[in-house]
Amino acid sequence: MPRQNSQPTPADEAATTGPQLLESRSVAGILVHFIAIPTGVVGAGLVYLLARNEFTKRNARNALDWHLTVLGLTVVSFGLLVSYTEGTGQGVADIAAFSPPVSTGIGLLVPLLLAGWGGALVLTVGLGLIAMGKATFGSAWRYPFSPSLVERYGGFVAVDNTWPLSIGAYVVSLPVVFSAVFLGSDEAAVFVVSTAGLLVVLAVLTPLTIAGMYLHGDRDRPQNAAWQPPVVAYIGVPGVVGLLGYAGSRAFTDSLYPFGDGLYVFLTALWVSAIVYLARWWTTATE
């Protein structure tokens, strides 16, 4: 009689692991690497916070570790560049505060950091695509040169119960930024600061506010909670108002940038929605 082989064949293993692989993967876990290439920490961080699937969370954590590393390099590089410019009398203050040896040392270090920063941007694209390819085949690939920041320090930044603070940051920041943008002087420094503030509102605080309303008001809210907010309305109404603002600007004004007008209307409507959300949450929580 022919000897029976009890060991599984490669075909059997492929047939077994194939369906399991499809079940373990998620579209978000694959695409998070591509999403994070242009959006950086914000995109990877939001996917990480919103993820429930373990595969998605692992991939988002790996992407977030890399982009936090790049963000740190960016802050150090440009922070040192600004310090060098100001300290050598080439900036706004026009006062040379650094001694010649310090100026020379920083002057040699800044180009190296900027070169490293430029290389990190190039690597971000390449490594992101590699990680996306690895995730397609079911692997949560760690980016090289990036420490495990989220795993090591994530426990110290618990956001589950602090989403109202994130929403409140948007409520406080938007009037300040709008005042600087629309009422500020034409000086170069004011323009740079107001533009940077507007970018922070658009790229960071607005996504965090929307995510905060969803997580705090819907996904993580107990079913027996005293207040069950209509999160779709809190998030959706500002979007509709923004579209109406865009349409109205195109139809009834000679604005050169109707999209920008609609965006400002959306941000304002979201600001009102955030105030109402916080007020309802606060009054209900204290009842």
Rank of each mutant, 00 (worst) to 15 (best):
P238C: 11
P111E: 12
T17P: 00
L174F: 08
T206Q: 04
Q228A: 15
S185H: 01
G184Y: 09
T286D: 10
A115K: 01
V47D: 03
G118T: 12
T56N: 04
R221K: 06
Y264G: 10
F78H: 05
P230R: 15
L46I: 12
V231I: 14
P2M: 10
G18S: 15
P100W: 05
S139F: 13
G168S: 09
A93F: 08
T9C: 04
L121W: 12
S179C: 02
R221Q: 06
V276A: 15
Q228D: 11
L114D: 05
A226S: 15
T88P: 04
P144K: 06
V237H: 03
K57C: 04
L208Q: 04
V176L: 15
R3I: 13
P229M: 12
A60H: 01
P222H: 13
P207M: 15
G262Q: 03
F55D: 05
T209C: 07
P207I: 14
H33C: 06
T9N: 08
F137H: 11
L129W: 11
I210W: 02
P222C: 13
S77V: 04
S139Q: 14
G260Q: 13
R280N: 06
V122D: 07
F34E: 04
V276S: 11
G154N: 10
A279P: 00
L165M: 13
I167K: 07
L129S: 12
M1E: 06
G155E: 03
G29M: 09
V240K: 02
V241R: 04
L243R: 00
D218I: 00
A11V: 10
D254G: 15
A60V: 02
T253Q: 11
V265M: 07
E13Y: 12
A226R: 15
G155R: 07
L64F: 04
N62H: 13
A15R: 14
P238F: 13
A233R: 06
L108W: 02
L121V: 08
V181Q: 09
T124A: 09
E287G: 11
G116H: 08
P144L: 09
Y277A: 13
V110H: 08
T253C: 08
W163N: 04
I167C: 03
R142D: 10
P164W: 14
A120H: 01
A188H: 12
S26H: 09
M132S: 15
V177I: 14
A115H: 01
S179T: 11
V177E: 10
N59A: 02
A60P: 04
D254E: 15
T209M: 07
A93K: 12
V171L: 11
D12W: 00
E187I: 02
D160H: 15
S273I: 11
A14N: 08
A188Q: 14
D218F: 13
V265N: 10
P38G: 06
T9H: 05
T16W: 15
V150Q: 03
A169P: 00
G72M: 07
T209E: 05
Q228S: 14
S83V: 07
P147S: 13
G126Y: 12
A247I: 00
F182D: 09
G126F: 13
D65C: 05
Y170C: 11
S194P: 01
K134I: 01
Q90V: 00
L68S: 03
R3V: 12
V181R: 12
L121P: 00
G40T: 12
V102W: 01
E151W: 00
Q4E: 13
A269I: 01
A60Q: 03
Y84A: 12
T9D: 09
G262E: 09
